[in-house]
Design a protein around this nucleic acid. Structure first.
Lengths: 338, 338
DNA sequence: TTGAAAGCGCTACCAG
DNA sequence: CTGGTAGCGCTTTCAA
């Protein structure tokens, strides 16, 4: 069986209090006893129980991460960034794929509480924002990444979606496009909305206005993107957009597939720009021009904020906005002169 | 603060034992008290502490999953499958990206023990297999997925790598290829070795033998695959392979990129076949022909085995071998007649 | 310096 | 049926 603090104490001929003290580097212990105890711990391969220590009011050193789907490359990359930073600070990560379903969010939120995680990182949307308030009442530290819930006093780390949208627009405009369209995510996704806003704002600066059916709402799957893109690309040539801004890489891939199916060449006949710069963007054909989110720094930052928060050393609630970056690959080009 | 069992008991005017009993559905409680207690729990939004209950000898309902890198789509997909099955059985998942470094494996193994996870799912390789024996001595349930350590008595779920290799070979042979080459993972990766074996065995059945420099060892990155593929594809035309079997999709993508760089067309000039059928395979250009692993059933199965194991109802150690499947997309075709 | 003892929240056994 | 109580492994006073 596993060795306990009692085993170590007995073996070393001291009290459990002494053992506890050397483990936590607290209290005064003679150097002699100290090394003796250390030796015994080593010998017994003693692994202190985090469970027991947590019960006495200390931390569990476990964090929860809620994302829509860990198998989605974007969130997998976020998870890795969060895991690494957490790990370097001594925390483990429990992953929770919510599929964006409130019911799953609720279930996980409750589970994580029962397991006494030290804090939660929310990277998933939810329809009912009230789900989080009970947590906050209980003073369970929460931070958000890549999503935000306005009027919720929590640290938040996001990319500047609006600016990302303007970057995409500028790139396309610079290339000479004038007939544009957007593949957006569901309207309730704030980040997507902001991207669209930034995109449209930039267009309107030079007097371009998108008709409503040129802004399509999709879920977040490749299939969805493809379906909507097909409709857009099947419009009569005069209306058909020459460039597509997709609010994430998955949708952009759908658009690529739609173009292929319609025998349209990318970027000659149609330019496509994505968002996120996941690994997917680098392996498509053609490689996807996209707006990159600085995932790694974001994951790092959100963990740092969470740790600060649960150490009560937290500054006023911050909203950290990171700058996106345009990554030009080969899915965008000047429109062909017709 | 969080409500405890005491709060519920006090509020309901009963003993904590009674509360505990209704929670666990044990003992005899009058229907009356029972509903009353339930009502109070509801009212106080009582969340029983898994920590405390675990300390009394019950389970933590937490599982650990070790993989090389959660941001690698293949492992992210495994994680999702494992998470789902675990979740449906009431278990949470702690993810651990090891980067295939023994040092990280060891650290995580120790951490998971300290946190008293109920079991661990190993999907990462390690040089020093002895790292697992202390766990087994302590009777911590372990199962393996997508990796195996022969002569270690643990349940293992793998795809039939050898057969996968033969499938790839048959497909290429049927297409008419005779000059073949392999992009393998490091020789210590058993699954890769088996794939190579299956592939070569099939070739030798019809008298084809690969020269040694046509079997290249890579790490598991796209860059690595590309580098090795470049060398292969730059061979004089007479020696240059017309088809490449890559032991995973990442390497295959590297091969695709190498071909592109050399202005070779896929599949006309060079056929490429991957392994794993991750999401990446469906978004490349051309879409990748690959050998699919039944990830979802594998994840489900491995969790079931683990749960059985920790309920002590475990049958003799099983090695579950699932059948791979050839997914034909567009990266393979008959060699062009030269 | 050191150790006895009181919990942390919950389970399980046992006497009523 | 019901409730008192002894732990689970560890932390933290508080005396000695």
């Amino acid at each position: 069986m596993k060795a306990t603090i009692y085993d170590v104490a007995r073996e070393a001929g001291v009290s459990i209090a002494a053992v506890s003290q050397v483990m936590n580097g607290k209290g005064k212990i003679s150097e002699e006893r100290r090394t003796e105890i250390l030796k015994v711990m080593e010998k017994l391969n003693y692994q202190p129980s985090v469970i027991a220590s947590a019960l006495t009011g200390k931390k569990t050193y476990t964090l929860g991460l809620l994302v829509p789907d860990i198998s989605n490359p974007f969130f997998a990359e976020i998870a890795r960034a969060v895991e690494d930073q957490g790990h370097s600070l001594g925390y483990s990560l429990v992953i929770c794929s919510t599929d964006n379903k409130d019911e799953r969010v609720e279930r996980y939120l409750s589970l994580l509480q029962q397991k006494s995680v030290d804090g939660m990182i929310i990277g998933t949307g939810m329809d009912n924002k009230d789900m989080l308030t009970p947590l906050m009442d209980r003073a369970i530290p929460i931070v958000m990444i890549a999503r935000e819930m306005p009027d919720l006093a929590v640290h938040t780390v996001v990319v500047d979606d609006f600016v990302g949208g303007t970057m995409a627009a500028k790139h396309l405009l610079d290339l000479g496009h004038t007939r544009l369209a957007i593949l957006a995510e569901h309207a309730k996704v704030i980040s997507s909305r902001e991207r669209v806003k930034g995109f449209m704002a930039t267009l309107s600066e030079i007097g371009i206005k998108l008709s409503e059916d040129h802004v399509r709402n999709c879920r977040y799957t490749v299939e969805d993107g493809k379906r909507e893109a097909l409709e857009l690309l099947e419009l009569p040539a005069a209306e058909r957009p020459t460039a597509l801004f997709c609010c994430n890489d998955m949708l952009a891939i759908g658009a690529l597939q739609a173009a292929k199916q319609l025998k349209l060449r990318v970027p000659e006949d149609i330019s496509v720009i994505g968002f996120d710069n996941t690994i997917l963007a680098s392996v498509t054909d053609p490689p996807l021009t996209t707006i990159a989110q600085p995932i790694e720094p974001m994951g790092k930052k959100v963990v740092d904020l969470l740790i600060l928060e649960l150490k009560k050393k937290s500054p006023a609630k911050q909203r950290v906005v990171m700058l996106p970056e345009l990554i030009v690959r080969q899915s965008t080009a000047a429109p062909s002169k017709v």
